[in-house]
Simulated assay, not measured.
Amino acid sequence: ADRMPSHVAVIMDGNGRWAEERGLPRREGHRAGAAAAREMVYGALEIGLRHLTLYTFSTENWKRDPEEITTILKGIQREVDEETIRDLDVRQRWSGRPDELPEDLVQTLLSRERRTRTRSGLTLTLCINYGGRDEITRAAAALAQAAREGEVDPHLLGEDDFARHLPCPEMPDVDLLWRTGSEQRTSNFLPWHTAYAELYFTPGYWPDMDRRDLWQAITEYSRRQRRRGGVGAPLTSTENHQPSPHARPDPRH
């Protein structure tokens, strides 16, 4: 338990490819991906994870076919409308720009934030119409405005000052960034928060994932040493003195 991450962020990749390999329309992949996301919420609650952030729709996703974009956004709207996790101890958050998103979706997301803000279990953040560089640009603009109004001294700025001007200042740093679907890049996802995150890439497509895969990712995290620029803990005696494969067995055992 003392090696549990506090915050896991997930790039849920492979929905479309999962469907195409099965001869299905891509929309079926997104539907299956939504079911996998619900499964991860249950898995996170079961293991006691504090924060789970899901990359749901990026600012770059607007480059896709309009029909697929409509399918994705309608699927997100359906998920938040159905409130499948309504009775769970989950605080729901949204990170992203409202621009271009359907107004009904924006209002529903804001309503879920207000209604669940006092819950103390899992904090689930959906990144919808989110871009990491956009987030940093917006924070820089807010900080410049604050400096112009005399609220901050530009010569005394620190990381905490910048973090307070991010669109979601309450979001903690990410401990583990997990991406499915074989790709090994972070794709403009939470660049500020993942500066020291452990990276974990798996080949399976997102719709095939279930809570056991989340637990496996967390298990892998627990085996790693997080140095953050310092020196790691020394190896234990058992790690330093592994028996030789050719050593004779101890007759006392």
Rank of each mutant, 00 (worst) to 15 (best):
I128Y: 04
D99Y: 11
W94E: 00
A140T: 14
G158R: 11
R212A: 08
R148H: 10
H193M: 02
P98H: 03
D161S: 09
L143E: 12
G16I: 02
V231P: 07
H7D: 07
A32D: 00
G121T: 10
R17S: 03
R27I: 09
L199S: 14
D213T: 09
E103K: 06
G29R: 03
A37V: 12
P251R: 06
P243T: 02
E100T: 10
P5Q: 14
V231K: 13
P243F: 03
S187Y: 03
R64A: 07
A139Y: 06
F57N: 08
S182K: 12
L54R: 00
R164E: 12
D81Q: 13
A217D: 05
P98S: 05
P5H: 08
P5A: 10
A233M: 13
Q184W: 08
A233F: 08
I72L: 07
G132H: 01
L49C: 02
E170Q: 10
S182P: 04
E239L: 10
P25H: 12
R17M: 08
S6I: 09
F189R: 01
D99N: 08
Y221S: 07
G29I: 01
L73E: 06
V90H: 02
E60N: 10
S6T: 11
E159M: 11
R179P: 03
S95G: 09
G48T: 13
R26N: 11
T116D: 06
T59F: 03
A9N: 07
E46D: 15
E67C: 10
P102N: 02
R227Q: 14
L88S: 13
E170K: 03
D134R: 11
S187P: 05
R133P: 07
R185A: 07
L122I: 07
L105I: 05
D250C: 05
A197I: 09
Q184C: 11
T194R: 09
E60T: 05
I72F: 02
G96K: 04
T180Q: 05
R17D: 05
A144R: 11
L166C: 02
R226D: 04
H30F: 04
D104H: 09
L214R: 05
G204Y: 13
S187A: 14
T202V: 15
G33M: 00
R26S: 06
D99P: 01
N129W: 14
R78V: 09
H193C: 04
R31T: 13
